[in-house]
């Protein structure tokens, strides 16, 4: 079992009308079965209202399933005595940096989590220092959070979660309110935590560019997981994503358009570098021997090693599920 696993998870929101007895049930997620390996970088995509935040809130027991089960590191989140254990294992970071900082100085804010867990004072200070170093905010430890930029505030919020030493961090659109600089800061921090500390990362986002380095992507629509795979597998399906009110990175879209115009490019190109290399290759080929339209080879996989590795990884995952 992975660090986060759900089987047939469903959740109903209750909507109250004017009259108290007039209660409507709205199913936000339905029949969601996922299995996330420890140490993975996971991205969840989906348009507004597709259920991705509802799913995320199940990962640290902010919401409890109406049907089905959610396990965090083997603990059933619906078992109330285990609630605090669950929340220590999976920390959550939200969209608005101003809504989640409560301390008047950066280091106090970061210490809040461990303090609530009953960590001894000396240990709290060690953890505060450690986690602020990890997110690159140690030199701002004495500052008031309201003098920080959005990206810095989000990094403080992440440090606050890191100080609780979770196995897993769930980030719900952490970059939506940030400028390009702030977005990069936060993403770099999150990737480093994933790579160096082996923290499992679950990133919910609307920015397709943020997803391209993930190990595995889930796409949600009307409460269901409708697509999953490596970024390359997901972004190869441009038309399907557009139907789901989503997008592909600009690079992928340009490659897709060029391919439609008859240029021999692989599907699901994700980075600028890849596209440039592929185009130079095509250009070389055209110079040497003109190719007629009919003999163009249908290449489907990207040429580089990284994609092969990612593909293998995802195949293995598929295998374990079956």
């Amino acid at each position: 079992m992975g660090i986060i696993k759900s089987v047939k998870l469903a959740f109903d929101y209750l909507k109250y009308g004017e009259d108290e007895s007039d209660v409507q049930k709205v199913r936000a997620i339905d029949d969601v079965t996922i299995d996330i390996e420890k140490g993975d970088f996971i991205a969840i995509l989906g348009h507004n209202g597709s259920g991705k935040s509802t799913l995320a809130k199940h990962m640290n027991a902010l919401l409890l399933p109406t049907e089905g089960t959610m396990w965090v590191d083997g603990i059933d989140t619906a078992k109330e005595p285990e609630l605090w254990k669950v929340r220590q294992k999976a920390g959550m970071v939200f969209q608005n940096p101003d809504n989640q900082i409560i301390g008047s100085i950066v280091e106090e804010d970061v210490g809040f989590g461990p303090e609530n867990m009953g960590v001894p004072t000396d240990e709290i200070w060690t953890r505060v220092e450690e986690s602020l170093t990890k997110v690159g905010m140690i030199k701002h430890r004495d500052k008031s959070p309201n003098r920080l930029s959005g990206g810095q505030k989000q990094r403080v919020a992440i440090a606050g979660v890191v100080a609780m030493r979770p196995d897993c961090i769930v980030l719900d659109e952490p970059t939506a309110m940030l400028d390009p600089n702030g977005r990069q800061e936060v993403l770099r921090t999150v990737s480093e935590l994933n790579e160096k500390e082996n923290v499992t990362v679950i990133l919910i986002t609307h920015y397709m560019e943020e997803v391209i380095h993930a190990d595995h992507v889930f796409v949600m629509d009307s409460g269901h997981v409708v697509m999953q795979g490596t970024p390359r597998e997901i972004f190869s399906q441009v038309d399907r994503l557009k139907k789901l009110h989503l997008d592909v990175p600009q690079v992928t879209e340009l490659a897709y358009e060029l391919k439609k115009s008859g240029i021999d490019l692989p599907d699901g190109i994700l980075t600028k570098e890849e596209l440039v290399e592929e185009l130079l290759r095509v250009s070389e080929k055209m110079k040497s021997k003109p190719q007629s339209k009919g003999t163009r080879s249908e290449k489907t996989s990207g040429g580089n090693k990284a994609s092969g590795k990612a593909r293998k990884k995802s195949n293995e995952r598929e295998g374990t599920k079956k």
Binding site: G46, H47, N48, Q95, E173, A176, M177, H206, M208, H245, L246, D247
Partner: peptide, 9 residues
Amino acid sequence: TAGLDPQGR
């Protein structure tokens, strides 16, 4: 368009 999904944007 801050915070909207690609289609909404």
